[in-house]
Amino acid sequence: MSGALLAAVLRDPARAERLDAAGWTALLGVARAEQLIGSLAWRLDGLAKPAAACGILADARAAAEHGRTAALWEAEMARRALGPAGIPVVLLKGTAFVATGLSAGQGRQIGDLDILVPRDRIDEAESALLTAGWEWVKPDPYDDIYYRRWMHELPPLIHHERDRMIDVHHTILPLTARITPDAAALIDSRVALSNGLFVLPPEGMIVHAAAHLLADGDLQGGLRNLWDIRCLLDEFGEDATFLDRLAACAAQHGLTREVQRALRLSAHLFGDGGRLTVADRLYVRRLLARDGWGQPTRKLIELAFYLRGHWLRMPPLMLARHLWTKWRKDKEAR
């Protein structure tokens, strides 16, 4: 399975030197599908590669570099919109990695701008962004109410000139999830950057990444999240006190189980190995479910994790009502 090939080469780049043309084709195909081709390009820097692969990876690096510039500009735009009102803007995920110059940001593909703001200032933040040129993406009233009532973020906003999305979070998991992280404590732990923006401290970044990967959603694109975690551990794990801080942070937000699993999965796929539980093995199967064309495989496991994602997200009765409404709306649309 080619997902496994990608993980193996990310773990040990020298493996790429033994690949034949078909192996390279599969590796590049699955790396693109998992949005990890820029990270792979950085990882394989300086190794002998076939000329065609060199060209493709150089393009991927150039694209990621442009993405980095654009992401930092979006962050600055958010700061200009929210800064004057004194709303602290905490960058999350990819933008935070590149703004801090972390190895997790090298070649990282960055889509939307994700920020965290205090919940009691969320209305203010929304109107400031609307004034500054962002507008709502989803005109659907059900979705809008759903987001506002149950989600951990505002309905997505898009900038009318730059065509870039911003996700304004007030916490890191949906309000309907059983785990309720302490968003105020996360924001209090923020670290100031020199440009007036903020990021989470490294342990907060990992806890957020683990929550996003394992306590929310269906693990689609999960390999990239896990690679983020591996890079953060690689960069900060040397410090003996770091793992204690990470454990304390995870416990504080009720995410100990998720963080421990993320550590095990990262060690298994990208590190020195280590023991997996039976459930862990299912996660590994889901994370690596791609063929050499970049297509998803293992449909049954994919479906199981899709259902699990919804199950985590909301209580059963609410889930039934939600799916019913969605199904009805879908039918009307057709």
Binding site: A21, W24, T25, L28, G29, P50, A52, A53, G55, I56, W293, G294, Q295
Partner: peptide, 9 residues
């Protein structure tokens, strides 16, 4: 090509 730049399905 040995290694294609793009895949189409």
């Amino acid at each position: 090509p040995d290694i294609p730049d793009f895949n189409v399905r």
